[in-house]
């Protein structure tokens, strides 16, 4: 399906990513005991991101997941690891496409999106790396819900 993030248009099979996430959601979220902190949705909700900032935030979020999150999510469960690999490789594929558009300076980062993403990193760094990675992985539906809401 083709998604429009500001000037960037990216084809992405969200259905496949969602099906991979749905298969591991209960398991991964059960490994995250911290109810009072979210990486993506508080204090700034993704749903409040302005249209102009969507491209930059999406670009940074896919980089964030590929560069920082997935590698710290290895579990003792082979089935879960295989599903994480499938999601990670799908994210890598999208990251590449978004990266190309970003390099062509079409994906501008306003001050607000920089602030938002800085907050997301602060939330992430506020936890030990494994807890932060598992929490971020468990919030994938927050990211997908927001991506799919794109006009």
């Amino acid at each position: 399906k083709l998604f429009h993030f500001g000037p960037c248009r990216v084809s992405m099979s969200v259905t496949e990513i969602r099906s991979g996430f749905t298969a591991i959601k209960a398991n991964i979220q059960a490994r995250d005991p911290i109810r009072t902190l979210s990486i993506l949705s508080h204090p700034h909700s993704l749903h409040k991101v302005k249209l102009l900032d969507r491209c930059c935030i999406t670009h940074h979020l896919f980089n964030f997941y590929v560069d920082k999150v997935f590698k710290h999510c290895k579990t003792e469960d082979s089935y879960i690891n295989r599903k994480i690999s499938s999601i990670a490789n799908s994210f890598l594929s999208v990251k590449r496409k978004l990266g190309q558009c970003y390099e062509q300076n079409k994906c501008l980062c306003g001050q607000e999106s920089k602030e938002k993403f800085k907050q997301i990193l602060a939330n992430y760094e506020g936890l030990n790396v494994t807890s932060a990675a598992i929490k971020s992985l468990g919030e994938l539906d927050i990211l997908l819900d927001w991506i799919e809401k794109s006009p």
Partner: peptide, 13 residues
Amino acid sequence: GEYEREYANESWI
């Protein structure tokens, strides 16, 4: 996958 090669120390699953 490509992810494992480039971001996860060339791990195999």
